[in-house]
């Protein structure tokens, strides 16, 4: 176990402990703080919650997570899994190939793919010019652009989780409900969703964790702009810490992001039953 523990201790646990120390100092990449970091207590944290841009970035992150993961990927993935039940296997397999291709391609490629599609003079724009609707979608609707791009990229995961879950729903139960005169809607609401509750909660946890830390896609598409219109917390941290060189402030924000992630991670662990851990 020693090698694994050593690597994880040095490069995973190490930075986390280091970050707790840095967050309470005024360490920076330039200026006085670079040479002689001083202990500043909770100053970084009090500054953080008075910083309108940080609060703004948290709100944007929440919109991004709720819009693209919880509403977008989750609902669309469920819908696809539901619609594909009992359909022609050639059609569903062809569709799944494309959905999964969007998921497995490197995030940076997915980003440029959507950039090419949305920027002024790009595909969508060229198409809409015929209707006199030319605009730079990344400039006018940056949040919508990154949300849609992220839905496109991440739906495959939810779809796979739900089609696995749906294949475990016993056919007899559905038959019995139909015989009792249940409509499609109540079949879904009273039988399928309660049976899938575990997959739904697990899926929501995992996609929230993934989306929370999403950086590359947003960075390529809008780089947080225009202005701060799509600057989610990871991008704001990047800007503060690695472009404005305020390492300690960036690290303090990292801890907040890490704590939010840890909260979801704890819920996720509770969901994985103790027997599974062994």
């Amino acid at each position: 176990m020693a090698p694994a523990l050593g690597i994880m201790g040095l490069f995973f646990a190490g930075p986390i402990i280091w970050s707790v120390y840095i967050a309470f100092t005024n360490k920076a990449l330039t200026g006085v703080g670079a040479q002689h970091p001083k202990w500043v207590g909770f100053a970084n944290f009090t500054h953080m919650f008075q910083d309108p841009l940080f609060v703004h970035s948290l709100v944007l992150t929440a919109i991004f997570v709720i819009g693209s993961a919880i509403i977008g990927q989750n609902t669309l993935g469920f819908l696809i899994a539901l619609l594909e039940r009992g359909k022609n296997s050639f059609v569903t397999r062809a569709l799944n190939t494309f959905i999964i291709a969007a998921w497995v391609m490197p995030e940076i490629v997915a980003g440029f793919c959507w950039y090419a599609f949305l920027y002024q003079g790009g595909t969508l724009d060229t198409f809409l010019q015929h209707f006199g609707l030319s605009q730079d979608w990344l400039y006018t609707t940056p949040m919508l652009a990154i949300i849609i791009a992220n839905i496109w990229r991440g739906t495959a995961f939810s779809m796979l989780v739900y089609s696995a879950g749906l294949s475990d729903v016993p056919a007899e139960l559905l038959e019995a409900a139909k015989v009792d005169g249940a409509s499609q809607i109540s079949l879904l609401r009273r039988v399928i969703i309660p049976l899938l509750r575990r997959s739904i909660v697990t899926n929501l946890m995992l996609i929230t964790l993934q989306t929370l830390a999403s950086f590359t896609l947003i960075f390529v598409l809008t780089a947080g702009g225009p202005g701060e219109a799509s600057q989610t917390t990871p991008l704001y941290i990047y800007q503060q810490a690695l472009q404005l060189y305020d390492i300690s402030y960036g690290t303090a924000m990292c801890i907040v992001l890490l704590l939010i992630g840890a909260l979801f991670s704890v819920v996720y662990i509770k969901l994985i039953r103790v027997e599974e851990v062994g």
Binding site: F12, P15, I16, W18, S19, I22, L209, L212, A213, S214, F215, P234, I237, Y238, A241, L242, I247, G250, T251, C254, I255, L257, L258, G261
Partner: peptide, 8 residues
């Protein structure tokens, strides 16, 4: 989130 430990 790995993104969150990259600054430290």
């Amino acid at each position: 989130p790995i993104t969150a430990i990259l600054v430290p």
